[in-house]
Design a protein around this nucleic acid. Structure first.
Lengths: 214, 214
DNA sequence: CGCGCTATTGATCATCTGCTCATTACTATT
DNA sequence: AATAGTAATGAGCAGATGATCAATAGCGCG
């Protein structure tokens, strides 16, 4: 099978818009493709295969990124950034809205953002690799989302049970685990997780004796 | 730095018992080392570095395993096998013991088995790689542990709430997430997770209106 | 003690992989 | 239509990596 048409086989990807994109666009395309590629095969995936999927030469990648490492950093940035909307801290502490509703709103939106194969897998790969961004993300999540949630819960709970961060992490982990099952382990999981999320939240609130009206 | 003593530098690992082990023992040592090594650096870790850590030549590895793939299979087997004690199905359904106690017993023992860095990381790496054993393990867990737990809970719960497998997975995920935070993300987590596990179980039982005596 | 078996080694191969760079050819501009 | 600027290519290097195999040397046995 010796293709002779067009510029010599740019990666067996016929029908894809050809060469000479504006640099910004090309860079964008590469990052996009790299996210999908590395999410699938892991961060050790090789640049030749990535290039082939993009329908582009491998050397082109190094016109846009000095090293593979730099490309992976761009992938991290793409995947991690803007995943936590900055207005959540305010919305989660808005006591004009029942806590249950705030929790439902947050986890419904958050899960729709992160229960996505590319994100889940890049996050896990980078976590296993000990990437600094992973640590920072989790610390940020803890401080900006979970710790305020602890305060909100404490404010409403009878102080019989002294709630700790571990209780919040348990709520969070139980929900996130849905996405892990689905995208990391590729096991069946509810395609629409809203009901499971609702149950998790109600289980949480019930234990800390918070009525659904509070 | 040219070592001249002993058989030529077997990997800069002085003081370690030397050469010519009985094959069974050597094989054991290699698998053990491979578990630790791959758990740390991932399944793409290279055989030369592994050999060096073992204080052994790289070629020796291929006397015991035909391919790197075969070695990794041995690692999987070592890590996955005997992780789920076969008597748990019986113990979890032993209604002479309160369900709360059964759950506490199970998750205390189970967490002490799996909240271990090597296991957690190999499990995650193999899950991401789509290893068949990973699937089988999770299906097995679901059928042999979690599904019976669903039945036990249903038997005791007021049938107001219809419990589903998702509720069980939520309990399970919330607990397992402790180990994920600790060993995958290397974030701080309670060194003794028993209290968090107890809370998770009580939260679960409370929601389904099961008294601590049942 | 000497010998034979075999666990272990060291050198080496073929391929893979990140990366470089001189050359090519697409496209905007005139 | 000709040209200049540069996006993209393709050949190729150096080092890494899985795997092979003949040679070596530790150890049990007579």
């Amino acid at each position: 099978m010796d293709l002779k048409d067009g510029p010599r086989d740019p990666g067996a990807n016929p029908g894809v818009p050809r060469r000479r994109l504006p640099p910004k666009e090309r860079r964008e395309q590469i990052v996009e493709g790299a996210v999908a590629f590395f999410a699938e095969v892991g961060l050790d995936g090789n640049t030749r295969e990535l290039a082939q999927r993009l329908g582009v030469t491998q050397s082109l990648l190094f016109n846009y990124f000095d090293t593979k490492e730099a490309l992976i950093e761009a992938v991290y940035a793409r995947v991690y950034l803007d995943r936590l909307s900055p207005d959540w801290p305010d919305r989660l502490t808005d006591r004009t809205i029942p806590l249950r509703q705030r929790l439902l709103d947050f986890y419904t939106e958050y899960s729709s953002l992160i229960f996505e194969r590319h994100w889940m897998r890049i996050f896990m790969f980078s976590g296993l690799a000990g990437a600094a961004l992973n640590h920072r993300y989790l610390e940020h999540l803890g401080e900006v989302i979970l710790r305020p949630l602890l305060a909100e819960t404490k404010a409403l709970s009878g102080d019989a049970a002294d709630i700790t961060m571990e209780d919040i992490w348990n709520l969070h982990g139980g929900i996130v685990y849905i996405g892990i099952r689905q995208h990391i382990y590729r096991m069946p999981a509810p395609e629409n997780p809203e009901e499971a999320i609702t149950r998790a939240i109600d289980k949480y609130l019930t234990f800390f004796q918070i009525g659904s009206d509070a």
